[in-house]
Every structure is written in C-alpha cells, then in structure tokens.
Design a protein around this nucleic acid. Sequence first.
DNA 1: ATGGCTCGTGTAACGAGA
Length: 254
Amino acid sequence: MKLATWNVNSLKVRLPQVLQWLAENPVDVLCLQETKLTDDKFPTAAIEAAGYQVVFSGQKTYNGVAILSKLPISDVVKNNPLYEDAQQRILAATIAGVRIVCAYVPNGQSIDSDKYPYKLGWLAALREWLAREALTHDKLAVLGDYNIAPEDRDVHDPAAWAGQVLVSEPERAALAALTALGLEDAFRLFEQAEKSFSWWDYRQLGFRLNKGMRIDHILLSKALAARCSACVIDRAPRKWEQPSDHAPVIATID
DNA sequence: ATGGCTCGTGTAACGAGA
C-alpha cells in the first residue's frame, strides 16, 4: 500500500499535474493540501474518472484538504472535533483498515504574528485528538504539510533560519509531542540523501539551488512503521511547468 | 535591502504562503 501527501497550492491550477502524477504514480491514497476550492467547485468527476474515490473539505481562497483513494473510504471526519476552527485544515478517513489523517498545519507567518500562537494552539489540539485516535486505531497515518522542519538537517541554511517560524523551538517541540504519541517520521526510517527537502521558495531560484526545507511529513504509528519499506520525496513534479512549491512525499507499507 | 515568485480575488494591487 502506498500513501502520499502533496501540498498542491491550488487544485484548480494543479489538477492536470495531480492527474498526470497519479498516472505515473498510482498510489493507493493521496492526501492534498491547499486545494483553495469551495466544495461546490471541487473537481470530483475528473478525479473519479482517474480511478479514485475522493472526499474533501474546502473553503474560499485559502486552505482546503482532500483525500483521494483507490479503495473505499469510510468514517470521514472534517476538522479536529476538539478544536473549533473556521479554517478547513484537517480531513480524516479510514481506508483498508488504516486511519488516515490529512493535515494542513498553519504556517504561522512569523513568530511575532498572531498566527504563530494560533499555530501552536492548533498543534496542541491536534496532539490531543491524535492521542484519542491512536487508542482506537492501531494503524494510524498522519500525512500533510506540517510547516515545521524537524531538525537543522531539514533546512538548507539553518543559521539564517535559526529561531524563525518553521524551525523555532516551540514548533519543533509541538512536532516532537506528536511523535511522542508513538508516531514515527517515515522519511527518517531510512537512509536519505543530505539536503533532502519537500518545499522550495518560488523566488531566487530556490529549487535550482536546492534552497529548501523538509516540512511535509508522513507520521506512522508503530504498527505501520514496522511494515514501512520506503519513504521518498518525489522532486519530479517540482521541475514541471507551473509547479507547486511543494513536492509529493510517498510511503510504502508492505 | 522585507524584496525576490505564485496564487486568489477580481480586473488593481494586495494578502498570504514559507
């Protein structure tokens, strides 16, 4: 079983790329973030024509998440039941006995922005909810754009980024509190190339110069991590015309 | 140097992303 996550930065713009990517990478489950579409505008027919079932939760202009699946989807939950949130950032579903959580963690903007405490509070509430989900779901996978680089090796220039949003100690502690639930960063289960990133700034030749960050993650419960045989970042679509600034991350579960 | 791209909104700049 292959599980993937991709922040597409507008599904309206990126739908052709998502369909092309799925044709080349027929994963079982694909979690999308930043669809930026209200539900009435979601391209359900095109995705179903590609052989995927789909559930989604969106809003105008910002945020929005979706789960695409080759297999039947059940027990869908929109947003964190423990956290009142006008922003559509979470979608959960059960697929083939695996509890899938698709998450678009707030960016935070900067550590002195009011969006920063929102991000930390949101993450604390996510932890509380995932702790509950873990009680009833042995197989739990939390995929998405976490907007946190876990370690300095996940940042192209750690000195320049020190203390800033995406790398600050409270954010890293919030991510560590998730892994402390028994969830493992699938990417780090395996040997990886140095300077492996999942996001590159559109500006200043970020991708060409590999000035990126690893902020998109797949967290797996012990039961899934034990059966995970690979986790890779697919840089290919970042090279396509009019790309998302994020690359897909794929985990293989045997 | 707070900009440098890209997107949505809406049809001009501007907020947001990271």
